[in-house]
Design a protein around this nucleic acid. Structure first.
Length: 246
RNA sequence: GUUCAAAACAU
């Protein structure tokens, strides 16, 4: 059984999800009991493919195999609904987490998933409402902040993006390179290359390494504004930094 | 060992 769990995770990590499914069902039919994390890996795999019903069915069937879904199982499913912008479905799962039977409680990841769903669906009002609910359970982390920064960046509301950045710093949460890259991309897309490079500077000053996504956002901004020579220059800078273009 | 946030991609 231990070897089985190992293989299952390995297959999913190496993009052989189909095989992992066959493996799981083969073992279930022979009466083996997979570990909770094996169920969760497969649930998450289904969700990323958009097979939400299969994921849901698998989750529902876990008790038959002496395994209770935990918050990770539910979070995976919740994220599936959010990824495909099925906010109604997500809310139903949320209800089940909060007041359905009750051996699970929402955690910070649960809220981050909901925020991301609302943000990507353009439902900022709902995102802010949930912020209030979150405070009863947990304290926001760097992912929470970067989700909101990304939402503001995509809306072109750079002022609010910077406010969230400053707010997190005030609260002692260190911005990471995802946070910077989200805001840099917002600046680039809304024609504020100056701010974008300022952030790039702050990033390196705080010894965060700009990665290939950071560079792509900047290079894309420069290209789309016709600054091709600056784009080329930045591209060579990226190579000097030892970052491989993809 | 399993769940959440960032970029680009012509025809």
């Amino acid at each position: 059984p231990y070897t089985f769990n190992k293989s299952l995770h390995h297959l999913i990590r190496s993009n052989c999800g189909d095989l992992s499914l066959k493996l799981l069902f083969h073992f279930l039919s022979r009466g083996y009991t997979p570990h909770l994390s094996s169920f969760n890996s497969v649930i998450s795999y289904f969700c990323k493919l958009g097979h939400l019903n299969s994921a849901q069915n698998l989750l529902n069937s876990m008790p038959k195999f002496n395994c209770s879904p935990d918050i990770v199982s539910y979070n995976s499913l919740l994220d599936g609904y959010c990824r495909f912008l099925n906010i109604r479905g997500a809310c139903l799962i949320m209800k089940r987490i909060c007041c359905g039977g009750g051996n699970v409680r929402p955690d910070l990841v649960t809220f981050n998933i909901m925020f991301n769903g609302f943000c990507k669906a353009g439902m900022e009002g709902a995102a802010f409402m949930y912020m209030g609910v979150m405070w009863k359970y947990c304290i926001p982390n760097v992912v929470t902040h970067s989700t909101f920064i990304d939402m503001f960046s995509k809306m072109g509301n750079l002022d609010m993006g910077f406010r969230v950045l400053n707010g997190m710093r005030r609260d002692g949460i260190l911005p990471n390179s995802v946070v910077f890259t989200s805001l840099i991309d917002g600046c680039c897309k809304f024609g504020n290359m100056g701010e974008a490079f300022q952030l790039y500077g702050e990033m390196t000053e705080s010894s965060l390494l700009p990665n290939v996504v950071t560079y792509t956002a900047l290079i894309d901004g420069l290209c789309k504004q016709g600054m091709l020579e600056r784009a080329e220059f930045l591209f060579s800078k990226m190579l000097e930094d030892g970052i491989r273009p993809n």
